[in-house]
Design a protein around this nucleic acid. Structure first.
Length: 560
RNA sequence: GCUUCCGUAGUUAAAUGGAUAUAACAAGCCCCUCCUAAGGGCUAGUUAUGGGUUCGAUUCCCGUCGGGAGUACCA
């Protein structure tokens, strides 16, 4: 049940609506003050009375009942202590009934949301800079699905541009098939890097010609391009599988090659296209932005042109309610511009376009740079984490079966959790020390908490759920249940803010509360009734933690 | 220059405009004859700066300082 709503209905303040009271109800910083509180300061003016006396008066007017155990007025706050017994029983029963669906909702039924994320570049291996967009997007995918939305995951491949002409040129000059077959994408990437440092004027010219050949459908150029593309996808699919990341569409930039002209025509028809220094632009000066480049002076299309075409295509194909772009904040201006252009074109759905911006990743010695080898491959990071997890397992629990499988879940979980734990807008300085740390506020801590809970449940065997009437819950028990009850609101909050870190932090908070409970309250050795109640708390915590971690894309090993 | 984001313990970070600003890491100590010590506990330590709005500001507004990003034919 909605306790806030129940309380709001009981409070009557002249001249203040129930909704206003509902939205004012807060949670006190400390449980000893109460479970809910209404600050009365803002009513002082309307009632022409001091907040302190308003709170006192309200405290006398409202009677305690089965739901609200106690009402007190403290320094202008009206504090409510709820009936713990019924609250605990109520919350635990709900989780028991809903299981893996606890926290889900049908609020998104009938609505579609497109999410553009990961968007890898062809012929480039995955480095840690690609981690944020991949796991953020994937988590948002899972969160919105959980809330009942129809979600379309789009990997907007970077498969268009003169760089592919360069790549083919480099391969023709220096490449050999055996090496590429053997080392795959890394061999291809080396060719590209070499081109950038060694290419002559002639080769640059040749590269432009190869790009033109790809565009005009030349057989050999396209075969080479498709080969590089399939190598890339084969490589990234392995990583996607480990990270539990999925897509519904791999329509990349090239896909929109023949879909840009209608957009350009419409811009012309609506008189938005201006010529400037030979290029075609949309002037955005009156909106405080530099112009949006649509066509280069040589007539070629640009990034923005393809993104506009993609937006139209997605609206037409999926009829989305929201279209998210999980792309680093470097491109803030770019998205502001294309959203504005869509609006100027008269599309009311331009308001549904959202740039979900996140911070950048750098290394301790500066920005990443493929050219001078200052780069950290994502696969290496994952492998090192898994290796360390295996080593710790070997040391602490050498007799466990499936150690490799457990280490994979723990290691991968650590990488994902590390990427999702902080607010997405924060920049990240990558350090192995940090990702390899398995103590404290980490994914490993949450997984470990699950393993502990499961172990207790296993030892307990079958039991009948019990919520003994009249049992006054211990502080530690009550804190866990209170945290459990917050989960559905947490999921919605994370969705509204496009912020999976809210769920990650919640998982840590719940784990901390459970571990305190675990340490202070004996579960298996408790008296009849209490024992069953504590087992229910344990089972509900395990379920809710698993649900939380699943939304982040983290798997939970049975034992560790 | 202009636009924009960020600035909280030694470090990394939390905090719908609310009560005594939370955690973790690192440091020092304590707890396995006790349900998994990848755990629990204790000690010490924070809102860059100057104004403003407000009963109340880490949060909102303006300025200063410091840092990141962007700023026309790359994506």
């Amino acid at each position: 049940m909605d306790y806030k709503k129940y309380i709001a209905q009981k409070i009557k303040v002249v001249g203040v609506s129930e909704e206003e009271i509902y939205s004012s109800i807060a949670v006190p910083p400390d449980t000893s003050m109460g479970d809910y509180a209404l600050p009365c300061f803002k009513f002082a003016k309307v009632l022409r009375s001091s907040p302190v006396s308003i709170a006192q008066k309200l405290a006398q007017e409202i009677a305690a009942d089965d739901v609200i155990a106690k009402i007190t007025a403290v320094n202008g706050y009206l504090n409510f202590a709820i009936n713990r017994g019924s609250f605990v029983a109520d919350t635990l029963k709900t989780i028991e009934e809903q299981g893996a669906r606890y926290g889900s909702s049908d609020m998104g039924a009938g609505k579609t949301i497109c999410i553009d994320y990961s968007s890898v570049n062809i012929a480039k291996p995955f480095h840690i800079g690609h981690l944020s967009t991949t796991v953020l997007g994937s988590s948002l995918y899972k969160i919105f699905s959980f809330l009942g939305y129809n979600v379309v995951g789009i990997n907007h491949l970077g498969d268009y541009g003169t760089q592919f002409g360069k790549l083919i040129c480099a391969y023709k000059h220096w490449g050999n098939k055996e090496d590429v077959d053997r080392r795959g994408i890394f061999a291809v990437n080396e060719l590209y890097v070499r081109f950038n440092s060694e290419a002559t004027e002639d080769m640059e010219r040749e590269a432009r010609e190869y790009f033109r050949l790809i565009e005009s459908g030349d057989k050999e150029a396209n075969e080479l391009f498709e080969w590089f593309k399939s190598l890339t996808l084969k490589y990234v699919d392995k990583i996607y599988e480990r990270l539990d990341v999925k897509f519904d569409s791999y329509n990349g930039e090239r896909f929109y090659t023949d879909k840009m002209q209608p957009v350009i025509d419409e811009l012309k028809a609506k008189n938005l296209l201006k010529e400037s220094d030979g290029a075609s632009i949309v002037d955005l000066e009156e909106y405080g932005m530099p112009p949006c480049l649509i066509l280069r002076s040589d007539g070629a299309s640009l990034y923005a042109t393809r993104d506009l075409a993609a937006a139209y295509y997605r609206k037409k194909t999926y009829d989305f309610d929201k279209c998210l772009y999980v792309v680093a904040y470097q491109q803030n201006l770019h998205f502001k511009q294309i959203f504005k252009v869509l609006e100027l074109l008269g599309n009311d759905w331009a308001k549904d376009m959202v740039h979900v911006a996140y911070g950048m990743v750098s290394l301790e010695d500066g920005a990443m740079s493929t050219r001078n080898g200052r780069v950290v491959w994502l696969e290496d990071v994952i492998d090192k984490c898994v290796e360390k997890a295996y080593a710790v397992l070997q040391e602490k629990n050498p007799d466990l079966e499936d150690k490799a499988d457990i280490a994979e879940k723990v290691g991968v979980g650590a990488v994902i959790f590390g990427a999702l734990y902080n607010s997405k807008i924060k920049d990240i300085v990558f350090s192995y020390d940090k990702v390899l740390s398995f103590d404290g506020e980490t994914g490993v801590y949450c997984q470990y908490t699950c393993a502990r809970a499961r172990s207790v449940l296993e030892k307990a065997g079958a039991f009948v759920a019990a919520y003994p009437a009249g049992y006054e819950a211990e502080e530690q028990e009550f804190e866990v249940v209170k945290a459990l009850s917050r989960f559905p609101a947490i999921v919605k909050d994370a969705a509204e803010k496009y912020e999976p870190s809210i769920i990650a932090r919640y998982a840590v908070d719940l784990s901390q509360k459970f571990n305190k409970f675990y340490f202070d309250c004996k579960i298996l050795a408790a008296d009849d009734g209490v024992r069953e109640l504590r087992l229910c708390i344990t089972r509900a915590t395990l379920q809710t933690l698993e649900n939380s971690l699943a939304l982040l894309g983290i798997k939970v090993p049975e034992k560790m």
